[in-house]
Simulated scan of single mutants.
Amino acid sequence: MKSRYDFVYLFDVKDGNPNGDPDAGNLPRVDAETGQGLVTDVCLKRKIRNFVGLVKQEQPPYEIYV
Rank of each mutant, 00 (worst) to 15 (best):
Y9C: 15
P22R: 14
Y9D: 09
E63H: 05
P18D: 13
N17A: 12
D12R: 11
G37Y: 00
V13K: 05
Q59K: 13
F7D: 08
V13N: 09
P22G: 05
V55D: 06
I64F: 06
K2H: 08
R29P: 01
Q36A: 02
D6K: 15
K45Q: 10
V13M: 11
G35C: 02
Y9T: 12
R49G: 05
K56M: 05
D23I: 03
R49Y: 03
F51G: 03
C43P: 02
K47M: 15
C43T: 10
N26M: 12
R29V: 04
D31P: 00
G25N: 07
L44H: 04
Y65H: 08
D6P: 10
L54R: 06
E63T: 07
F7I: 09
P28N: 11
R49L: 09
G16M: 08
L44W: 01
G35D: 06
G37P: 02
D23V: 00
D41L: 06
Q57Y: 10
D21P: 03
A32M: 00
P28F: 02
R4H: 13
N17Q: 11
Q57E: 13
R46Y: 11
D41T: 10
A24S: 14
P22D: 10
Y5R: 12
Q36R: 01
A24R: 14
P18Y: 08
K56Y: 14
E33K: 14
A24T: 14
G35I: 02
K2T: 11
G37L: 03
R49P: 08
D12W: 02
P22K: 14
Y5H: 12
K2Q: 13
V13C: 03
L44V: 14
V13L: 02
I48K: 12
N19D: 15
S3R: 15
R49K: 15
I48Q: 14
Q59E: 03
Q59N: 09
I48P: 09
Q36E: 11
D31K: 01
K45M: 04
Y62F: 13
L44T: 12
A32H: 08
K56Q: 03
Y5K: 13
A32Y: 07
T40D: 00
Y5F: 13
K47R: 12
V30T: 09
V55W: 12
V13P: 05
P61S: 03
K47E: 15
K56D: 01
V42E: 08
Y65K: 08
K2C: 07
Q57A: 11
K45D: 03
E58T: 11
G16T: 01
F51N: 07
F51W: 05
P60L: 06
L44E: 13
G37D: 05
L38S: 02
Q57C: 06
V42A: 05
V52A: 00
P60Y: 07
S3C: 04
G20S: 01
V42H: 02
T34L: 01
G25Q: 06
D31Y: 05
G16Q: 10
V8I: 13
V55M: 10
F7L: 02
I64G: 00
Y65L: 10
S3K: 14
L38R: 04
D41Y: 07
L10I: 11
G35Q: 00
D21H: 15
G20P: 15
K45T: 03
C43S: 13
Y62L: 01
E33N: 12
